[in-house]
């Protein structure tokens, strides 16, 4: 493994709290190893800031293995940075070269207010799930797991939709801040399974209604969401949601 280091310039969005207008601050970072992850580079910078008596940069992160969906940085105009199907915690500094300038912002969307620096409030996603993103089954009542066979193709498609990690990159990438990829992934996951069939109409209607209430924008089919999704959630799900939604509307429910 080649060991090389680089010096970079970071332009990072700083904002004290939701009431503060915020602005960019510039930080040089030195001797960054190509083997570091992007967030580890932020760790290094924050350690320096603390030692200098300055306020470190707040950012969301937890599992650092690309599955919890907490990390959320908008890097040089792209959610999660330059790599395909990737979260920022899995982005490594090999992606950059000595002398680069990197601009880092929080997710930008009216429905995701900034709490501090790069941290946003994605509570809207939880509220959309509360509106219907589940199968209404209480603990203890189910039949045997193998009592209802599920076509493998459908089970695989449901799994592919269920791979969504709820990070919000789709919203951040969309010029309209639409949440349709997120909503459609959940509607698809549950509609594709026989267990989810009884509620599929009310689910689609209620989740879309909540999405609108949260102030997310309309979908204009640019596909930017799919392009940046770290889990490769397909916009086919949006087509499926539209069918579910229209079907539910037509049935007069």
């Amino acid at each position: 493994m080649e060991q090389n280091t680089m010096n970079l310039t970071l332009k990072v969005w700083r904002q004290k709290n939701s009431g503060d207008p915020g602005g960019f601050a510039t930080y040089p970072v030195k001797n960054i190893s190509a083997e570091m992850s992007f967030l580890e580079m932020f760790d290094v910078l924050n350690e320096e800031l603390i030692r200098e008596g300055k306020d470190p940069i707040a950012f969301d992160h937890d599992c650092r293995e690309g599955i919890c969906g907490m990390c959320s940085m908008y890097i040089n105009g792209r959610p999660h940075g330059p790599w395909e199907k990737n979260t920022v915690c899995q982005l490594h500094m090999r992606a950059y070269k000595d002398g680069d300038t990197i601009v880092v912002e929080p997710w930008r969307a009216k429905s995701f207010p900034v709490l501090k620096d790069l941290v946003v409030d994605r509570g809207a996603f939880d509220r959309i799930i509360q509106a219907g993103g589940y199968i209404s089954v209480n603990t203890g009542s189910p039949v045997d797991a193998n009592a209802v066979p599920v076509e493998k193709e459908k089970a695989d498609a449901a799994f592919a939709a269920a791979a969504c990690i709820g990070c919000g990159a789709c919203v951040a990438a969309c010029k309209n801040s639409s949440a349709l990829l997120f909503v459609s992934a959940k509607v698809s996951h549950l509609a594709l399974l026989p267990q989810g069939a009884p509620e599929r109409r009310s689910r689609a209607l209620n989740m879309v209604a909540q999405m609108d209430k949260e102030g997310f924008g309309a979908c204009t089919n640019t596909g930017a969401c799919e392009a940046v999704c770290p889990k490769g959630i397909s916009i086919e799900n949006i087509a499926r949601l539209n069918r579910e939604f229209i079907g539910a509307g037509m049935s007069g429910e």
């Binding site: 589940y134 199968i135 089954v137 603990t139 189910p142 797991a145 449901a158």
Partner: peptide
């Protein structure tokens, strides 16, 4: 059984 009923895509 419970997880399958909830829609866990095993």
């Amino acid at each position: 059984d419970q997880c399958v009923a909830q829609g866990v895509p095993f």
